[in-house]
Simulated assay, not measured.
Amino acid sequence: MNMLEVNDLSISFIQYSNGLRQKNIRVISDLNVAIKTGEVLAAVGASGSGKSLLAHAILGILPNNSRMTGTIKYNGEVLTPERQADLRGKEIALVPQSVNYLDPLMQVGAQVRNGSKNKEAVIAQREVFSRYNLASHVERLFPFQLSGGMARRVLVSTAIVSGARLVIADEPTPGLDAVAVKETLDFFRELANQGCAVMVITHDIETALKIADRIAVFYAGTTVEIASAEDFAGQGDELRHPYSKALWQALPQNRFEPIDGFQPSSNELHGGCLFAPRCSIATSRCASVLPAAREVRQGMVRCIYAS
C-alpha cells in the first residue's frame, strides 16, 4: 500500500520585477512519486532539482507566493492544508537540511521532547541521545553551543521520538563521521522495517543505495526515473533514462565520466525533454513535449526512447 502518493505536482512562484510586473516561475513540473509502507525511497539529484521543495509541499510549508497544482495523498486521502497542519510533526516528520530549523532560544532536549507522543518523552529523548553518542549534558545546551554534527544528530532524534509514520530526511548525513552516518542510515532502515515510509533526500547515490529500496532521480523539477536500487549496478545497463545512466557512470568507481552542460535554471525551462540539451541520444522529437511518465521494465521513466 502507498502511504504517500504525489501525482502531477507542479509548483510555481510569483515574482515581481520592474515595479508591479508579475512573473510566474515554474520550478516543479508534473512530478510523480509514491512511497509504500515499509519502504525507503531515496530522492537523488543535483541541487535545484526540486527535492527539498517536494518535501516542503508534502508538509504544507511552501512560501506564500507559491502556487501548487496536482494532488498529494497520505494514506489514500488528499493532504489539504488543514490536514497537513494536523499531521505535521506528528504522523509526518521532517529531518531538515538546515540546522537553523532548531529554535535558538530553547534547550535541545526540550525541543526533541516537544515532538514526542510518548508519555515518557524524557526517557525516549535520552535513549535516542545515548544511541547517537550525545552526552547527558547535551540536552541542556542551546543550538549555538552544538557542533554541526551534534546539531544534525539532534534533528534526526526529533524525527525518531516523534512516532511519525512518514519520515522525510533532507540530506541527513553531512557533517557526520562514518560511524554516525551508518548509524543514522540504519535508524531510517529500522523505521521502514517497523512499518514507516521513509524518504531520504540526497545528492549522494552511494549513500542512498546503502538503505534504499527504490531511487527516484530528479532533474530540473521533475522525476525522470524511479528505479529499483538493484538497477544501479555494473555500467548502469538496467537504468532507463540517459540522465540516470550518466549520474551512475560519473561516479569514481565507474567510468568517472562527467556530464557535459548544466541543469537548466527555473527561468530557462522549455516545453520539451528537460535533459535533451545534454543528452547524447536526443533528436528533434525531444524538443517539443515533456515526455509522459510511463512504466518500463517495472520502473518509471520520462524518455520516449526508453525500452
Rank of each mutant, 00 (worst) to 15 (best):
A216V: 02
F187M: 15
Y219F: 14
K117M: 12
N254L: 05
N133Y: 04
L269K: 13
M150C: 08
I215R: 00
L247D: 09
M300Q: 15
K117A: 12
L59F: 10
L105Q: 10
N133F: 10
V289Q: 11
A306W: 00
K245F: 04
E190L: 06
Q194K: 15
F144I: 14
A164L: 14
A250N: 12
V33F: 12
S52V: 08
M300I: 13
F144G: 09
R140Q: 15
L31C: 11
K36F: 03
L247E: 07
G70V: 07
L251Y: 05
A233K: 08
A282K: 05
I226H: 10
L274A: 12
R240V: 07
E206S: 04
A57D: 03
M150L: 06
T158S: 13
R255E: 07
P252H: 04
L155D: 02
P63E: 07
E171D: 15
Q253I: 03
A227N: 11
L274E: 08
R240G: 06
L53D: 00
A178I: 14
R214Y: 12
H137T: 09
E206W: 01
N267L: 12
E183Q: 13
G149I: 05
L54W: 03
F275S: 08
L176C: 11
G48L: 04
V198I: 13
K182F: 03
F256W: 14
L185Q: 07
Q263L: 12
Q298P: 01
Q298W: 06
P264D: 11
Y132L: 13
G38Q: 02
F232W: 14
M150Q: 15
K36L: 02
K73Q: 14
A93P: 08
V301W: 01
S136P: 01
T69Y: 07
S162I: 06
K245Q: 11
R88W: 05
F275E: 08
E139V: 10
A250S: 15
Q111Y: 03
G236A: 08
S12V: 03
R26C: 12
